[in-house]
Design a protein around this nucleic acid. Sequence first.
DNA 1: AGGTAATCGAGACGGTACGTCTTGTCTTAAT
DNA 2: ATTAAGACAAGACGTACCGTCTCGATTACCT
Lengths: 212, 212, 212, 212
Amino acid sequence: MSAAPTAVVGETVAVTEEAERRRPGRPREARADEAIVAAVLDLLNEVGFSGLTIDAVAHRAGVGKATIYRRWEGKEQLVLDALTAGRFEFVEPDTGTLRGDLLAYYLPLTESDAQQGAVGLMPALAAEAAINADLAERLRAFVSDRRGPVAAILERARERGELGDDVDLDLTIDLLTGPIMYRLYFSGGPVDPGMIRQLVDHVLRAVGARAT
Amino acid sequence: MSAAPTAVVGETVAVTEEAERRRPGRPREARADEAIVAAVLDLLNEVGFSGLTIDAVAHRAGVGKATIYRRWEGKEQLVLDALTAGRFEFVEPDTGTLRGDLLAYYLPLTESDAQQGAVGLMPALAAEAAINADLAERLRAFVSDRRGPVAAILERARERGELGDDVDLDLTIDLLTGPIMYRLYFSGGPVDPGMIRQLVDHVLRAVGARAT
Amino acid sequence: MSAAPTAVVGETVAVTEEAERRRPGRPREARADEAIVAAVLDLLNEVGFSGLTIDAVAHRAGVGKATIYRRWEGKEQLVLDALTAGRFEFVEPDTGTLRGDLLAYYLPLTESDAQQGAVGLMPALAAEAAINADLAERLRAFVSDRRGPVAAILERARERGELGDDVDLDLTIDLLTGPIMYRLYFSGGPVDPGMIRQLVDHVLRAVGARAT
Amino acid sequence: MSAAPTAVVGETVAVTEEAERRRPGRPREARADEAIVAAVLDLLNEVGFSGLTIDAVAHRAGVGKATIYRRWEGKEQLVLDALTAGRFEFVEPDTGTLRGDLLAYYLPLTESDAQQGAVGLMPALAAEAAINADLAERLRAFVSDRRGPVAAILERARERGELGDDVDLDLTIDLLTGPIMYRLYFSGGPVDPGMIRQLVDHVLRAVGARAT
DNA sequence: AGGTAATCGAGACGGTACGTCTTGTCTTAAT
DNA sequence: ATTAAGACAAGACGTACCGTCTCGATTACCT
């Protein structure tokens, strides 16, 4: 997924091979994007998603409101792009065993810091995605992005022979990620190291993983 | 969880044994509750959660805004109660086998009608719950309510000997429900009969279920 | 002309004889009118007509913007009403002679204070009146209001026999007022005691006034 | 008054005799002036003065906004110049008598076409002039321009002996023009042939004109 | 029967964010 | 240096909702 701002109406993606003919007029200020995204991330920490206003973002970024609306369609798109742009790099653990990798990947989620921001954010984005097809697609892409590391872990395991060729990797990811999100966002159930370990062990048994 | 309106501040739940001493003054109009809840459900279908306004509900229900605020604390509580009040009864299937029961319970979720309303609603409620402790608790209760039938299914299976005593029922429910919600709300992955069947089979293997 | 706020849509003037049935709902706050009008007059002095914003009026009056828009249609109507409501009482001089009365009435206009506010205001209102029939009528009424004292002066003169019955009073007023406004607003010509005296003498001669 | 665009700051009017040293760089497009002025006159008819925006003028004229701002200081100056540039030539009637000349000059004003544009325009300019000294001067010049024909009429009358040497020509013009403008812009009183005739006769008597 | 008191529908209230608009300046590449 | 195009910061616009408050009228219980 690209970190580039949402293309707005008429911004034809005519970036065809050849020339990519410069559009006439003053080009968009590249630094404005950065300033806006930085302001969004700042404000998300300070007032949360629902307390974030476009006026505040504009002021904090030293930017006119129109500059924001020229680049994004609304708060949700903006936040999603800010998150995408500012994403911390995911570690792709490599401990040598499938179980070790999965634990290394999921255990950090039990720290409250990690849960903090996401809990308020993801549901808000999902809610908006329900009535905004474009955002829905962007949200899917964002989520899909985060599936990458787990997919890599599983593929390495398959190469090592820990997983059979018949195992549905997508479903396996959902078996791991689904219960965690469900607890975080909806049921409020605990997401602690014990739960993660139990979860991983269940899933390993479900997919018939065999230690090498 | 009670379908009764949220008790508002100071409205002590002093409905203690004795007499339930009638409060002085004109009693609350019972029909207003129904009219309001009906209006909410109507409007949710028409404009969705985020498009729903208290003004519109009041007007549609032929009721003053104050009457709504006297009974509920805000949009989310109101919607949650409306959903609770208007909930269709869940069937608790009893096919004789754990696998049969689970499929009978989850397969209906693959019909688009069932997914329709929830997709926009649950994330919106979860988003609000993130900044409203009271609503969070109500949401948990609402969600927990829906876990009931599955819990009953699992307990019957345990009594039949299909499930060992050591199986964590809560985690089992999350293993089933989590991936479905995750796909519906976040990843946009398919939730169809094939996926449900695969999911149930995986979970049965994970918890070491044995057919009787 | 009434100092009452402009009637807005649907505010049927059904103040028929009988009962003047109270409209349902919370009545409009009478003090808000006063506070808003006072704020407008304050701000007109401080920033002038074109510098006046509805936000500033609302803030100064301690009132929401909607409260202003509920009562007036826009800046011009509001200012016109504020002027009307806050009008200082015109003296109706009575010196015993037509010439004395006219000088007593018009000479104060040469003081710069008197010219201050009007110069920016009247043309702005006239400009808006050109594209707003409702405002045009209100402006005419406002202007007509100010013709009153001169009309009274002329009528007294006629009773005394200083003016013939055939004199067109309206045109006479215009002969006096027109040149003054023309200089103030358009030509920038001087409006000083000498000019006023010359003007009055010319007009007296034009209408064939004879001292008694 | 010149129809040339307002000289902008620093753009010294050094177009002295001698050489008019060509300035470096691309010369200003002469046709732009015409296109802009034409666009302004078009738009004034379509949306009126207050509805006219610089963006619209630029787009209609096929010109960049900067090109307008390089030549004029703002909306009012631009409009004033557009009017000046497009002014129809005033006839300077010469009927042989003062009364005949004045009627010939003023009677055309009673046609609604003549009143159309000016009614919305002049007050708007006057309003702006109240807070813009430069525009005020330009407005005075514009108005003064229109006084020219009347001044010429009066001077010819004086040469013929119809007017005494002691008559204040400026005040006489104001006595004629003032009441007309006052009615057009503020009081909304009638400006028809009867009114004009009455006005002229009154003024002639006021200044003691004698037929030759 | 009269008094007391909380309710009712209606809608105005102060606040605040929205997304649009206009202004006058600035920045491109091209002329 | 000027051009057309259009992005820029600033900030007012008028609308929409929020949750509260204020009306007169209503509806019950309690003297």
